[in-house]
């Protein structure tokens, strides 16, 4: 009677252990294959180079070209931060928004999605409203520079997509943001 029960337990338990073993094997296999491919990539690169190195000088740029290069650099920054429970665009973000605005004015076919986010304090639905107000503040700022409203769309994620999960003052500050997505 007892032995019978034991066998029943084993019948269930053994395949469970077997399953566990299977999954761990397949994981290690993926690791191995990915590391092999990266090594082979490096090797081919070295052969193609033939051990030669090149050098050069910076081109002479006109002031317009210099400005363009600077703005290109600034556009890599696509996050605008906000103060707690506020949705005014801060002056320190003016340069970044200027770069994005000029680019959008010059390229009227380019569209941008402006995401609004909030930190985790307050209620989720209030934060959706706050996130939308931040995204709209950015849109209004860009519009005042001549960006067409048809080039911009808005979505508020409130506190649903934090960047920083620490729930510290610093973390909250990183999460109160607008993001420009091209």
């Amino acid at each position: 009677m007892d032995l019978n029960k034991l066998f029943k337990a084993m019948v269930i338990a053994i395949p469970l252990f077997a399953l566990g073993a299977c999954s761990s094997t397949s994981e290690s296999e993926t690791d191995a294959s990915s590391s092999t491919s990266s090594t082979s990539g490096q090797t081919s690169g070295e052969y193609a180079n033939g051990g030669v190195e090149t050098g050069g000088v910076a081109p002479v740029l006109s002031p317009v070209e210099q400005q363009k290069l600077k703005e290109q650099e600034l556009r890599r920054e696509n996050i605008i931060y906000f103060d707690f429970d506020r949705s005014e665009v801060q002056t320190e973000n003016a340069e970044i928004l200027q770069a994005h605005g000029n680019y959008l004015v010059e390229h009227p076919n380019v569209k941008v999605l402006i995401e609004g986010h909030a930190d985790e304090r307050g209620t989720p639905e209030y934060n959706i409203a706050l996130g939308e107000r931040r995204a709209k503040a950015i849109a209004k700022y860009l519009q005042s520079m001549g960006v067409q409203p048809s080039q911009m769309s808005i979505v508020s994620y409130g506190e649903e997509k934090p960047l920083d999960f620490s729930r510290s003052e610093g973390g909250f500050a990183k999460n109160r943001r607008g993001v420009l997505v091209y």
Binding site: K5, L6, M10, I12, A13, L16
Partner: peptide, 14 residues
């Protein structure tokens, strides 16, 4: 030992 193992297996299952 068998009984102990059996209990252990049951714990895992449950």
């Amino acid at each position: 030992i068998l009984v102990k193992w059996c209990v252990f297996a049951l714990v895992i299952i449950t």
